[in-house]
């Protein structure tokens, strides 16, 4: 079966169910009396976290790609996630005892500022080459990163920060992931604005011609991306690649009309992340490989395959 066939929504749902079962049921032999406890404390939170994070990053990537009008711009290549990490160090330094919600708010403000700064620079530069723009974003992110590292180094927090660097689901347990539920209404807003994002992606003049409030829609988009990224960074850390690969795969098979492909993107994001997480748990069991590593490996290979395969649809 071709990749395009696998990408049909019903197969994605089927894969999601299979992976979800595996996530919940793996390695429970001989633990009969604890099964309920393991489920409630660890397995169900982990499953929900992976699904919500996968959907959030995929949708954030899709929106980002559309409003920046560049296929290679995603929260990880536009400084959003790096700025969010700056927010994490800020909370560690100044608000160590803050509630998760307050932490999330601070990180969100950083992510928002970083993304808007990038969008502002993007509007100013004349040379909008497909490769140049994401490179600029990566440079941008690296500047944030070096500032963060500098501050972390001065305050002996380098280890805490590098723990954020690798997204990891092993630490997700009951009581440490619930903030992620906030992403559900955010994803709802993304669906509501889907049509507007597509029109905004066709350019400011095109949007004005159709009576769309371009600046408002772009701001909503950037706000959503920053919020979703902040939520993910605060709860599980940085998840590389997902926001880049999923929108690109979806575009190849479904086109660029966001309204029609948001569901598929959300499903694919969840399936890919669940798969990568399972792989990380199986490969060197009983130990775990952080999902950032497995996803980076699987994702980059998948992406290379797609590039070399070209757009034969």
């Amino acid at each position: 079966m071709s990749i395009g066939g696998v990408l049909r929504k019903r197969y994605l749902i089927l894969l999601l169910i299979v992976f979800a079962m595996a996530t919940l049921g793996m390695g429970l032999q001989g633990l009969d009396q604890y099964v309920m406890q393991i489920m409630v404390i660890s397995r169900i939170p982990r499953l929900l976290t992976v699904i919500l994070v996968g959907m959030s990053m995929a949708i954030a990537g899709l929106i980002m790609q559309q409003i920046s009008r560049n296929r290679f711009v995603s929260p990880t290549t536009a400084g959003t996630v790096d700025a969010a990490k700056g927010g994490v160090i800020c909370t560690l330094l100044f608000f160590p005892g803050a509630s998760p919600l307050l932490k999330m708010l601070i990180v969100f403000l950083f992510a928002m500022a970083g993304t808007f700064l990038f969008m502002f620079v993007l509007r100013k530069i004349k040379f909008k080459n497909v490769i140049f723009v994401p490179l600029l974003g990566i440079m941008f992110g690296n500047i944030f990163n070096s500032i963060t590292t500098f501050v972390a180094y001065r305050h002996d927090l380098v280890q805490n920060i590098s723990a954020w660097l690798m997204g990891n689901f092993a630490l997700v347990t009951q009581g440490r992931y619930e903030l992620l539920y906030l992403s559900i209404p955010l994803l709802g807003i993304a669906f509501f604005f889907a049509h507007q994002f597509t029109i905004a992606g066709m350019g400011e003049e095109f949007a004005i011609n159709l009576g769309l409030n371009y600046k408002f829609v772009v701001n909503v988009g950037v706000g959503l991306v920053a919020l979703l990224s902040a939520l993910v960074v605060v709860t599980v850390g940085q998840i590389p690649f997902l926001g880049l690969i999923v929108p690109n795969i979806i575009t190849i098979f479904y086109g660029d009309n966001i309204k029609g492909n948001l569901t598929a993107a959300a499903l694919l994001g969840a399936v890919l992340l669940l798969g990568a997480d399972l792989l990380g748990r199986v490969l060197i069991a009983p130990y775990e490989i952080p999902v950032g590593l497995t996803l980076g490996t699987v994702g980059s290979m998948l992406f290379l395959y797609l590039i070399f395969r070209g757009e034969r649809t």
């Binding site: 992606g201 350019g203 003049e205 011609n209 575009t251 660029d256 009309n257």
Partner: peptide
């Protein structure tokens, strides 16, 4: 309504 040459976009739309 206005159509400009620069409207021409490279989104994958039907």
């Amino acid at each position: 309504s206005i159509l400009r040459q620069s409207n021409h976009i490279d989104l994958k739309l039907t």
